[in-house]
Each structure stands twice: as structure tokens, then as C-alpha cells.
Design a protein around this nucleic acid. Structure first.
Length: 1114
RNA sequence: AGUCUCGUAGCUCAGGUGGUUAGAGCGCUACACUGAUAAUGUAGAGGUCCGCAGUUCAAGUCUGCGCGGGACUACCA
């Protein structure tokens, strides 16, 4: 039986499943962890995917990145536990369930109970786990699927509660207001996720207004009129009754403009940004005389009175625009400054309604400005927004919330109320709140301008109605309290790529806001906070034990039924719990659930049910050495992990992180079901294999760059890299089996006694080990991958093996042959280890074929660099051999002389001594490779010189151009003088400049009478003259070549000996006689005899001569 | 709108600290090789290094301003 397995056909998916079966039966993954018991651990956290969606090709990407570093570090001697996890809560799950059940949120509590609904979520979320597990297995991702953490489990939730309690005790948990997207039609707040559903932002045409806010005291502006207005633009006039401030940009220039009021025609002054002046006032108006103006004229004259900075306007107060209600929670009707103010559009003065805009809210808070919230949660004005004419109280602020019938009814009322304002109400159509407010402003002399405006506005993706920004009460984590620590500790994290850490993540931390935990939903982790109805007393529960103790008290008090036991920590069960306050009052749970990102950010603790169990395990597995996810997780998982560990321990949660890019389609478009450009990972893997897919992804570009996924690229990886490596192995196997070679590590030929070629590839191999180690330690997988690729294809296969072929097939086993086998064997074996993290299947297949044992490459130790075997001089020598061979071949090509024709000599013009010596070392290799008899060095006739800019530039600086020109003008004599004397004085621009040898590059280009080719410093001349002996040898080799082809055509075995009969043809006769021995050896022929042509059944073409011939097995 | 990022051959990508003929692989064309052959070699075609301005003796590389693609965040008067 053959020692080394030979297979006929390459079928990647087939051998991958073979390896997979081997892993399973022999528990290789488990062993790879068990084997490292007691070793230092390399801690990895699995970012949990959600199992309610199907895996895509991008999951193969991120999991490949995770897998390679875990595998690599295992081989490096670490114990690498990998606990899988599932993210199970959240909106996508709810949506999926609603879709399946055909219900909407409104049906919860009526058509379906909360308990049933959540039960449906629990089942649905793990729907695709089998498919996920299949992918995990097939792609070769090693992660422990047997004991995953699942975020909906009671133990997991209990850990979350405990962490929340710790934060609560530290004073980091509070309840407060923020402005959030809110859908009155659906009666619910919306998350950013929901707002980013396709189609939520729609183009709408809104009625906008520039309102005039009359200043109370314009004295500080020192102008001669008291009637001064600040102009502010709004696209949402319905927020004007809730206006409490105006914002200006501190550094923006404003102008005070004297003009007439456009509707009351009074002389007045208005303030707006200088940059926007031309938007409201045309040049022709400036030329009008104030005295000539008559009330009602179309063109109104104006004059810029003075220019001020925003900072000068700060603190000015104005009359309330629409006084329906008064502010009781702060200052009001004051000009403040805000950095978000621009002069892009509007007037450069921003109307601030703190209740209806996030920026407004923030800036108001900073300046102690109070708020008015004159709209309720239904989206209707409060009753007091009623003036009997324009506004009637308790009406929807957005037209879109009304049905057509309701509008009809409203119109009827409007016609009546507005009859005093609008002359002809018969043609009146329904006027929106916005339109009526503008009408009111106009009537009251507070309107400067109105116009329609096209912009995009977010809509509720479920009801299709426009959303409002509305103040909602939520629970927050005070992340801003530890902002400085978050920023400082981020410095300790090694981000790949670095800019994601400093840029995207760093900036995010710099602009941190408190973490809004609240979600008004059903399927998620309930907030463990109970409060009395008057909100005076709050309890945060941190464990089941504590909760049970509290429940006992409550049962005693009679607030809860006897025997109550909490079996499921979700809604609605937790809401049945009523606790007792210190004063004996009932306490109810705060209705919110918490943000699912808290679930995943707390996985370092909750995956172990810490702090209730596994104290040791937790300690040994915190923080993580390495995590990796898509860059879209920067402000998601990467942040929540970081935030929680800083809040809890003032430390980092992970030391190294790779934020990998997106996987796009081959045209660079995002993959989406809608475009139909989604790549199915299973199809790809089953067609090309997991290894080729993984290899393609990593070798193509750095993981943090976006990958344009092209299936052709996978095919290329398979062909190019795996194909070549397979070929190399199978070449080895064929001959090793013939020769009965067996690798014996105890009886190795010493490296020193091997041939230069062997020592060279061995040195290359050691350099490769070094490179791969360096790159992998730096979390740079792509250069590591490319280095392996280069080694296998360029160095091992295309140079070492190609040049060594004869050593394998010639003659009996001897020292040199032994060394050749050993060298190739070691290269293949080490390669299998180096590539094992990237291509876990093929590497194991290769390793086991070489080893003939049941051991897996994944249980071995990563190769250590043998520094002493790295011979850089040798590597350089071989580079010369490759360059010179390539040059000779290119001359042959140009001259149309085939490689089979031996040539007399290669001439190399004298270069410096060290290079000459290096070339001399590899002379024989070159001669054999290019089929030339001799290599000699000659003195060149023509030399050319050019400046070495890098060296010379430093020396002569600005005179560079002139000096360079002078050098190029040097003649042969001067060049030789420079060479022999080592220096030359040049006169440039009346100055003597001394040129040394190092300042220039001298190249020999021409050798009279020979064909020359050159690359860089090396030139090669080829003597292409043929004498009779060379011609005859050429013919002999031609015959050999043709007969080899015939052997193969006849399907003779490699080892078969043959008998040759050949036509007595003039063209070949003398060559055969002269080279009979040589020909016979090459062809494994016992003899060659001449016969008459008729008896021979084949023909071969030898240099355009047809020769009859026949061969048979001897 | 802001932040980050990318832009080099038809495609995928290399191009330390600035240095003068800008590279590789794939693809294409032609030729060769043929005891690894679904491999290999050689040659050829193919570039406004996104644009403009600046710094410099010298810019693919450094700076500024733009343009285009992508991601994230925000959504604004």
C-alpha cells in the first residue's frame, strides 16, 4: 500500500465533508481545547447572532475572521474556549411573529394575550437555529454550540437584573425626559431602527412660515426704532404656540435691517443672518427711497442699519408669539446661542420648541429655558390652544391624522369661524393647523413671509402617518458620568483598523449622550424597577432571591395571591408582581422593557450567570483578548460591551477588536433581497468549498475594507492556490510512493548538507513562518494569507519543484534524492500548519496525508521559526537566478529559439563584485533552467549613468535639476574615471560639486555583437550562435520531447521501459548515433534501432521533418 | 447635515519615512513548453494614480478645497 495518499480528482466539497466527519468522530474540536488544559487562555467573546433570520454570506466573513484567530492562538499554545450565543429579544422578532400570525400591535391584549404573544416570540426566535448550526459546521467555524448563552433564559435575565441593580446602586440609573420619534397614530415611541425602515422618509410639501418675534427691549442694539423683530423660519408652524426661545449662532453675522412691515406697513427693523439677507431682500429694493414708499407697494425699501454677531443678540427677550399658555419650568422667550444653527436656509435664527425637537430640547436645557407641550399624545392640541377664530383646541396638529370625512366636518366649522377673516368662504377648502396658524400670524402682524417647502419627513412605517418628535419619559443609564473614563480606556483597546477606534468610535464617545434603556414593547428583558404610584419610592431588584423575599412581604400584606411563583421572567408575569413600599404602599413595575443592546453588551457576565455562579470562570474570561464583528456594531455591541465594563469595573471588556467591513455584491452594491443580489452561503460552500470561500475573503482585501464579493474570485482561489498546492502534494506523493520514501524526523539530512536550492526554499519557509507569525500577532490576516500564497505558488511550486523535478524521477534513491523529498515534505507539512487557521479542511487533509496518522493539524503546535536557517544572502542569490533566467528566456523568445535548443553561453557585463559572486553561486541552476552551456562575466563596452535621486537629493537639494542634467551628459571616459577613482568633480552653475560613486547608478547596457536584455542593475547577453554539436544536441532533445509525448499518448506507465524503432532519416541519424545513451536514459529505453519506414506505425515531427517511428514496452 | 472611510490597468488589489520607466494576479491577444498538464513560461495591448490648488529641486505618496462611492450618526429651524 502506498504511504502517501494519491487521489485522481480534486473534489473540494467531497474531501471537506470527509474531514468534517473525521473531526466529528474524533472530537477534534473538543480535543483542541482539552489538550490545552492548564495553558494560559485566549479569551474570545461571540457576538450573538439572532436566529430568527437566515444567515448570509457576510456571516461567513465575520465568522471566518473570528475563527482564524481562535484557531491560530490554539496552535500557539493557548486554550481558547468559544461559547456560542443567541440574541433572542427585540423588535425584529416581534415583527416576524406579527407577520406570521397576521396581527398588529393593537391586537395584543385583545385578539392575543401578552402571554401567548411572548410564547410565540420565544418559539419563533430559534426557528432557524438548525440552519445556523449547519452553516457553522460547513464553513468550519469552531464554536461550542452545545452550551450557548441564550438571552431570553431566566438565568441570563437574572444576571442582567443584577447588573442593572449595580448600576442603580451606583446612581447611574435615572428616569428622565427626552425627545423621541413618536407615532401618535400608533400611540408608541419609535426606535431609530424603526425610523430606518425603508420608505419611512417621504417627500412632503409643507407650509412654512417666517415668523416675526418682537423684541421687548432693543436698546442694546442702539438703533432709532423700538419696533424690532427677530425673524425665524419654521417648517412646522404647529410648534409655534410651544415656542419658548430663539437660537442664534454665536459666530454668525447678523444684520439689523430697516424696512416696512410687509403686512402692517409700519416702519420697523428686522434681524436676520447676513448671509441670508439676499434671500428676502433684492438689490433693487435697496435702491428705493423710504420716503417714496406707499403702504401696500409691492417693492419695499430696506437699509442695513448695522451688523452684529450672534453673541451680541444673546440674552435679548421678546414678546411671546402666541400666548396660549405660560412657561412654569424655566426662563422663556429669550435669544440663546446654539452650535447647530447654520445659515444654510431659513433666517439664521431658529425657533425653539423644546418639546418637539431633540436639538431644541438640548439647547433649552443648557440655557435654563423652560418648555411648553401644547400637544397631547394623541397628536392633538391641548384645549387651551383655542382662540375661537383660527384654532379650536383638541384638534390634530397634522392634517394626515384626519380622515376625509373628519376634514369635511372641520371645514364646515372653519367656514363659519373664519368668515370675518376670509371674504369669500364658499371656495374654502380644509385648512390645516399650519395654514391657519400662518393666517393668524398674518392677521396679527407677526408674519414676514410664507412659502411651500419640499423636504423629507419621517413617517411611521406601520401607520404611514407622519411622526412627531415628542417628549417621553424613559429610563437612562448615565453614561455621560463616566465619559472621560470611556474615552481614556478606549486608548487601551487595539482597534483594527485603528481609525474605527479613534474616529468613528472615539468621536461617538466624545459626543456621548445618556443611554436610553426604555422600550415600550412586549418581548424583551423587563426593567426590574418597581415604584409607588406617586413615584416617591423606587426599588430596583437585583436577583430572584431578593424578588422572592419582596414578594413574600407582598403576599403577607395581601397585595398578591398566596403561592405566587415567578416561572418566566418576561411580561406579563413580572407585571403581576406588586411590591410593598417602606410605608406599606403598593409598588408597580415600571412598564418598560430594556434595550436589547443591553442584553448583548452584558454577555461577558450573563453568559456565565454571574454573579450568581461561576465566579472563577468569569474572572478567567474577562476581559476578552479578542472580539470581531461588522463595523456596523461600532455603536452597537462594541459600545455596549465597553460602556458596561467601564461602568461596572472601570476597565475594558476587550483588548483587541476587528471591525470588519461589509460584504457587497461584485458591483459594490449592498446585498438586499429586493435587488436579488444576495449570495447564498450554502450554495457557495457546496460548490467551491468552505476553504476556498474563506481563503478568497481573507486574501482579497483587509477584513475591514468592504469586500466586493465575486464568486469568480472564489473559483480563482480554488484554482490558483489550492490547485497548485494540491498539484505540489500529488507530485510529491507519486514519486515518494514509487521510491518508497518515508519521512523520518530522526534521520534527517542536515540542512547544511543540502543543495543550495533546498537550503533556499527552507530559508524561504522559515521567513514565511516568521512573516505569518508577525502578521497574525498583529491581527493582520490578509498579509499572512498573501505570504502563504506567494510561497506556495511562486517559490515552492514554480521554482523549487520545477527545478527539482529531475531529482525526483532520475535514478535510484540517494542522498540528494532523499534530501529533495525531505525538503519538499517539510515545506508541505509546515505549510499545512501555517494555513490551518485559514483553510481548516484542506490543511488537515494535507497534514494527514503527509503524516498517515489520525492526528489532526489542529492539534499541533504552531511552527517555531528556525532563525539559523534563514539565509538572506541565499535568498538574494536566488532572486538573481530568477531574474537572469527570466531575461534569458525573454531573449530566446525574441530570437525565436526554443528552450530545447542548447546555447553556448550567457555573458553578464561586469557589475560590482558582490553581485558577481552571488550570481556565480547559482550559475548551475541558471544554466540548467535556460539550457545554456556556460555563464561568463565580461567587461562592458557601453555604460550608462543616471543620478541616484534619493541620495543626491539630500546632498544638493535645490540644485538637483542642474546636477542631474550634468550627470546624464557624462561621456564614457568620465564614467570610467568616476568608477575607477571613486569620485568626480562637476561644475554646475559656477560651483564645483563632487560626485561620489554612491550618488549615481551605472548600468552596462550593450555588449557588442550580442543580444541583450536588462532589468534594473542586471543585464544579460546571450550568445545565440549555433555550432554543429549544439545543433545535434538540439535535435536529440527534440526527439526525446516528441517521444515523451508518444509514451504518454500510448498510456505507458512512468516506470515502463521501452524499445524504440526509428526510421533511418538523414536529419536525425547523426544526432541519434551521437546521443544514443542520453536519449535512452531519458526515455527509459533499452535500445534504439533503425528500421525501414514502412514497418513503423507512428510519426513524429522533428523540426519540420516527418519521421516514422514505433515504441513498445520492453 | 455631521463623522469616518475609500477612489491606482477592464476586474481584484500592492505601492515603509516624498526620489524620476507606478507594480502583481485575473481577464484579453500571440507564441512557446509538455514524465505536475483543468498546470506552466514569455511577450503584447491596457494608466489624466478622481479633479483643482498649494508645499517641495522632486507629489500616487504631504496640506487645503472640491467631486464620486460606502458606512454610521442625526434629522434640523
Amino acid at each position: 500500500m502506498s504511504k502517501y495518499r494519491e487521489i485522481k480528482k480534486l473534489d473540494f466539497p467531497a474531501f471537506e465533508s470527509e474531514v468534517l466527519a473525521f473531526w466529528k468522530t474524533n472530537r477534534i474540536f473538543e480535543k483542541s481545547i482539552e489538550n490545552r488544559a492548564g495553558s494560559p487562555s485566549f479569551v474570545f467573546y461571540e457576538g450573538p447572532p439572532s436566529a430568527n433570520g437566515l444567515p448570509g454570506i457576510h456571516h461567513v466573513m465575520s465568522r471566518t475572521v473570528k475563527d482564524i484567530f481562535c484557531r491560530y492562538n490554539t496552535l500557539k499554545g493557548y486554550q481558547v474556549n468559544r461559547k456560542a450565543g443567541w440574541d433572542t429579544h427585540g423588535l425584529p422578532v416581534e415583527l416576524q411573529v406579527e407577520k406570521t400570525l397576521g396581527i398588529t400591535k393593537e391586537d395584543i391584549g385583545t385578539k392575543i394575550s401578552v402571554a401567548e404573544y411572548n410564547e410565540a416570540c420565544r418559539k419563533d426566535v430559534m426557528k432557524f437555529t438548525d440552519i445556523w448550526n449547519n452553516l457553522t459546521e460547513q464553513m468550519g467555524y469552531w464554536v461550542n454550540l452545545n452550551d450557548p448563552y441564550i438571552t431570553y433564559e431566566n438565568n441570563y435575565i437574572e444576571s442582567l437584573w443584577s447588573i442593572l441593580k449595580k448600576l442603580y446602586d451606583k446612581g447611574y440609573l435615572y428616569k428622565g425626559y427626552t425627545i423621541q420619534p413618536y407615532s401618535p397614530a400608533a400611540g408608541t415611541g419609535l426606535s431609530s431602527h424603526e425610523l430606518n425602515q425603508p420608505g419611512t422618509y417621504k417627500d412632503v410639501k409643507d407650509q412654512t412660515a417666517v415668523a416675526m418675534f418682537q423684541l421687548k427691549e432693543a436698546g442694546s442694539l442702539a438703533i432709532d426704532t423700538d419696533l424690532v423683530y427677530a425673524l425665524a423660519w419654521t417648517t412646522t408652524p404647529w410648534t409655534l404656540p410651544s415656542n419658548t426661545a430663539l437660537a442664534v449662532g454665536e459666530k454668525i453675522n447678523y444684520v439689523v435691517v430697516k424696512t416696512y412691515h410687509p403686512f402692517t406697513f409700519q416702519l420697523c427693523a428686522v434681524i436676520l443672518a447676513k448671509d441670508l439677507l439676499s434671500k428676502y431682500f433684492k438689490q433693487e429694493q435697496a435702491e428705493l427711497a423710504f420716503e417714496a414708499y406707499n403702504a401696500g407697494d409691492k417693492l419695499i425699501p430696506f437699509e442695513v442699519l448695522k451688523e452684529v454677531k450672534g453673541a451680541d443678540l444673546k440674552g435679548l427677550v421678546y414678546e411671546q408669539l402666541l400666548p396660549f399658555a405660560q412657561v412654569d419650568n424655566g426662563k422663556a422667550f429669550e435669544i440663546i446661542t446654539g452650535d447647530f444653527v447654520t445659515t444654510e436656509d431659513g433666517t439664521g435664527i431658529v425657533h425653539i420648541a423644546p418639546s418637539f425637537g431633540a436639538d431644541d430640547f438640548k439647547v433649552a436645557k443648557q440655557h435654563g429655558i423652560g418648555s411648553l407641550t401644547l400637544v397631547d399624545k394623541r397628536g392633538k392640541f391641548l384645549p387651551e390652544v383655542n382662540d375661537g377664530t383660527f384654532l379650536y383646541g383638541e384638534e390634530f396638529v397634522k392634517e394626515a391624522y384626519l380622515t376625509e370625512a373628519e376634514k369635511e366636518a372641520e371645514l364646515f366649522i372653519q367656514k363659519e369661524k373664519l368668515s370675518g377673516i376670509i371674504k369669500d368662504t364658499s371656495k374654502l377648502t380644509y385648512l390645516s393647523v399650519d395654514e391657519r396658524i400662518i393666517l393668524k400670524l398674518q392677521t396679527e402682524g407677526k408674519l414676514f413671509k410664507k412659502e411651500k417647502y419640499d423636504h423629507t419627513y419621517p413617517h411611521c412605517w406601520r401607520t404611514d402617518k407622519p411622526i412627531l418628535y415628542y417628549p417621553l419619559e424613559s429610563w437612562f443609564i448615565k453614561t455621560t458620568a463616566v465619559k472621560d473614563r470611556l474615552v481614556a480606556l478606549n486608548q487601551q483597546i487595539n482597534w483594527k483598523p485603528a481609525h474605527t477606534g479613534t474616529g468613528r468610535f472615539g468621536n461617538w464617545l466624545e459626543n456621548l449622550v445618556d443611554w436610553n434603556l426604555s422600550r415600550s414593547r412586549y418581548w424583551g428583558t423587563p426593567l426590574p424597577i418597581w415604584r409607588t404610584e406617586n413615584q416617591d419610592e423606587t426599588k430596583c431588584i437585583g436577583s430572584l432571591e431578593q424578588l422572592n423575599a419582596e414578594i413574600t412581604v407582598s403576599i403577607e400584606k395581601g397585595y398578591m395571591p398566596k403561592g405566587f411563583e415567578l416561572k418566566d421572567f418576561h411580561k406579563p408575569y413580572v407585571d403581576e408582581i406588586i411590591l410593598v413600599s417602606s410605608t406599606g404602599e403598593k409598588m408597580f413595575r415600571e412598564a418598560d422593557l430594556i434595550d436589547v443592546w443591553f442584553d448583548s453588551g452584558a454577555m461577558p457576565y450573563a453568559q456565565w450567570h454571574w454573579p450568581f455562579e461561576n465566579e472563577e470562570t468569569f474572572k478567567n474570561n474577562f476581559p476578552a483578548d479578542f472580539i470581531a464583528e461588522g463595523v456596523d456594531q461600532t455603536r452597537g455591541w462594541f459600545f455596549t460591551l465597553h460602556a458596561l465594563s467601564v461602568l461596572l469595573f472601570d476597565g475594558i471588556a476587550y483588548k483587541n477588536v476587528i471591525a470588519n467591513g461589509l460584504v457587497l455584491d461584485k458591483n459594490g452594491n449592498k446585498m438586499s433581497k429586493r435587488l436579488g443580489n444576495v449570495v447564498d452561503p450554502f450554495t457557495t460552500i457546496s460548490k467551491y468549498g468552505a476553504d476556498a470561500t474563506r481563503w478568497y475573503m481573507l486574501s482579497n482585501s483587509d477584513p475591514w475594507d468592504n469586500l466586493k464579493f465575486d464568486i469568480e474570485g472564489v473559483a480563482e482561489s480554488q484554482r490558483k492556490f489550492f490547485g497548485t498546492l494540491y498539484n505540489t502534494y500529488s507530485f510529491f506523493a507519486i514519486y515518494a510512493n514509487i521510491d518508497g520514501f518515508e519521512f523520518n524526523p530522526d534521520k534527517l539530512t542536515s540542512v547544511a548538507s543540502r543543495t543550495e536550492l533546498d537550503r533556499w526554499i527552507y530559508s524561504k519557509l522559515q521567513s514565511l513562518v516568521k512573516k505569518v507569525t508577525t502578521h497574525m500577532d498583529a491581527y493582520d490576516p490578509t498579509p499572512a494569507c498573501r505570504a502563504i500564497e506567494e510561497f506556495v505558488s511562486d517559490h515552492l511550486s514554480n521554482w523549487h519543484v520545477r527545478l527539482s523535478r529531475r531529482r525526483f524521477w532520475k535514478g535510484e534513491m540517494n542522498q540528494d534524492k532523499q534530501a529533495a523529498y525531505e525538503t519538499l515534505y517539510e515545506c508541505l507539512l509546515v505549510t499545512s500548519q501555517l494555513m490551518s487557521a485559514f483553510a481548516p479542511f484542506f490543511s488537515d487533509w494535507l497534514y494527514k496525508n503527509l503524516n498517515g496518522s489520525a492526528q489532526s493539524v489542529h492539534l499541533t503546535d504552531f511552527p517555531k521559526v528556525n532563525e539559523s536557517a534563514i539565509d538572506l544572502v541565499l535568498e538574494e542569490q536566488m532572486e538573481y537566478a530568477q531574474i537572469i533566467s527570466s531575461l534569458v528566456l525573454s531573449i530566446r523568445k525574441k530570437e525565436n529559439i526554443k528552450v530545447r535548443q542548447p546555447l553556448k553561453q550567457i555573458l553578464i557585463p561586469l557589475v560590482d563584485a558582490s553581485i558577481q559572486q552571488k550570481i556565480d553561486h547559482v550559475k548551475d541552476l541558471i544554466l540548467a533552467e535556460v539550457n545554456v552551456k556556460q555563464l561568463n562575466f565580461v567587461d562592458a563596452i557601453d555604460k550608462s549613468i543616471k543620478p541616484n535621486f534619493k541620495v543626491l537629493g539630500k546632498k544638493v537639494g535645490a540644485k538637483m535639476k542642474a546636477v542631474a542634467a550634468a550627470i546624464l551628459l557624462l561621456n564614457q571616459q568620465e564614467i570610467i574615471q568616476l568608477e575607477t577613482e571613486g569620485g568626480l568633480s562637476l561644475s554646475v552653475e559656477n560651483e564645483n560639486i563632487n560626485i561620489e560613486l554612491a550618488d549615481v547608478e551605472i548600468v552596462s547596457k550593450e555588449i557588442t555583437g550580442y543580444k541583450v536584455a536588462s532589468q534594473g542593475k542586471i543585464s544579460v547577453a546571450l550568445d545565440i550562435e549555433l555550432d554543429e554539436a549544439l545543433k545535434q544536441e538540439g535535435i536529440a532533445r527534440e526527439i526525446i520531447s516528441k517521444l515523451q509525448g508518444l509514451r504518454k499518448e500510448q498510456q505507458f506507465e512512468v516506470m515502463d521501459r521501452i524499445q524504440i524503432k526509428i526510421e533511418d532519416h538523414d536529419y536525425i541519424k547523426s544526432a541519434i548515433n551521437q546521443f544514443k545513451m542520453y536519449i535512452c536514459t531519458e526515455l527509459l529505453a533499452n535500445d534504439i534501432v533503425f528500421e525501414s519506414a514502412e514497418s513503423l506505425n507512428h510519426t513524429i515531427e522533428v523540426d519540420e521533418n516527418t519521421v516514422r517511428i514505433s515504441i513498445h514496452k520492453a
